[in-house]
Simulated assay, not measured.
Amino acid sequence: MNRSPGPALLRRSRTIGLGNTGRVTAETQSRESVVGSGAPPLAAAELDRLRAAVSAALTEFLDRQRETLAAMDPTLVPVVDEVCALAVGGKRLRPAFAYWGWRGARDTASPEDEAAVLRAVTALEFVHASALVHDDVMDGAHTRRGRPATHVGFASRHTVEELNGDRHLFGTGAAILVGDLALVWSDELLRRSGISPAALTRARAVWDTMRTEVTAGQYLDLLRAAGGLPGPDGALTVARYKSAGYTVQRPLQLGASIADAGPEVAEAYTAIGLPLGEAFQLRDDVLGVFGDPAVTGKSADDDLREGKQTLLIALAEEEADEAGRRLLAASLGNADAGPEEFDALRGLLESTGARARVEERITGQTARARSAIATAPIAEDARAALDALAVAATSRTA
């Protein structure tokens, strides 16, 4: 596993050359993969500002944790490095939804300190990092954001350092602990964010519900992979609890709770968050099979090799003929399958209409969410920002 340069990496934007046409930073490139290069200037500028604030909060927190673990024993530094490497990537959508959930409902007469709110919503990045690490272990994934998955990286460290025992068990165990530590740190960052005690108490109710749902959703995903929760309805149930809720609905409600918003705002955020979160996850599923690896940071074969039981697969199973069902049985989840088999699976997802039906659902759920945004009882700047985020989250390329 390559050693991360540590939390200070969060302070820098890696520069990518573009010949004589100019230069662009990795931070900007990541933002454009979310909002698109044609995004309104205000939306793009706000996302850049939020990303910078989240990165700064992560840097400050991880620098402190690095010192703490290094003082315990220097061999713990790679654990912090791994969390840092996970934190460098990502689109910061969850903190963005939480922040605008707060902005849309805040009491301008006596608002919470904005810097404290930004630190509080940054804690969502650690929940996300934890979910990613544990998900990769359960799926047996090889890569994450263009680098070895955590369990793969620590298995490589075991080999390089000539440690005793089974390298794969070591990698899996280390990854589970890295994910657990990220979840512990999410609590710590929220608690130490600086929001008022009353706001923290309100936030904890949403926070606890969100973390319970994510964990339950991970189990439902395991169950579905083992043959439980069959069909399209099962796929959508997993998507809702494993990803959709903690991506949009609960972050919005977290912001609302910090703002001490009334029940009508919480209900509006549910009306926005559930369809939009589902559309976000379905876009993720499509990109996992049809995305450009140079943009997504992972092979387009990984989800098929891992046998992920997404809505795409459920719909294809419904419509496939006998030959198609044989192809699914032989190639989906087959670690020994090659590019030809996976290309054939992609062809099946196209020919059965599964991809088109998923795209239709993404469009429909996004429209539902945008309609709810248009009528939500929130501030106009938040309405505009959430609408831009809705489009960004569901039309992204990474």
Rank of each mutant, 00 (worst) to 15 (best):
T237D: 10
G291Y: 04
A268R: 04
T247M: 14
D301H: 14
T296W: 05
L276H: 12
T310K: 02
Q281R: 14
D285W: 10
E267F: 00
G277N: 09
A244V: 04
T270W: 00
L220W: 07
V248A: 14
V289H: 09
S299E: 07
D303W: 11
I272R: 08
E306D: 15
E278R: 12
D302A: 15
L282P: 09
A259F: 12
G307Y: 10
G217P: 04
A244L: 07
A300S: 15
G234D: 03
D285T: 08
A256R: 12
T310C: 07
Q249R: 15
T296E: 08
Q253T: 00
L287C: 12
A268Q: 03
A235T: 01
L287I: 11
A256M: 14
A256W: 12
P232H: 02
T237C: 08
P275R: 02
G262E: 13
L282W: 15
L236G: 00
V286H: 11
G227D: 08
S243T: 15
E306S: 08
G231E: 05
K298E: 07
G234E: 03
G217S: 01
L236S: 04
S243M: 03
L254G: 06
G245Q: 07
L311A: 13
L229N: 08
A266H: 15
Y219C: 03
Y219K: 01
G277K: 07
I258T: 10
L311M: 13
Q249S: 11
A279T: 12
Q309W: 00
T237H: 13
D301R: 08
E278W: 10
R305A: 15
D301T: 05
P232S: 12
Q249I: 00
A279Q: 11
D292I: 13
A256F: 11
D260C: 06
V238P: 03
E306H: 09
G297H: 01
K308L: 06
P293L: 08
R224Y: 01
E264L: 06
R250A: 13
T237N: 05
S243H: 04
G277F: 10
V248Y: 10
S257T: 04
P293F: 09
I272M: 08
A268W: 03
G288A: 14
G297T: 04
R250P: 01
D233H: 09
Y246W: 09
E306L: 06
Q249W: 01
I258A: 12
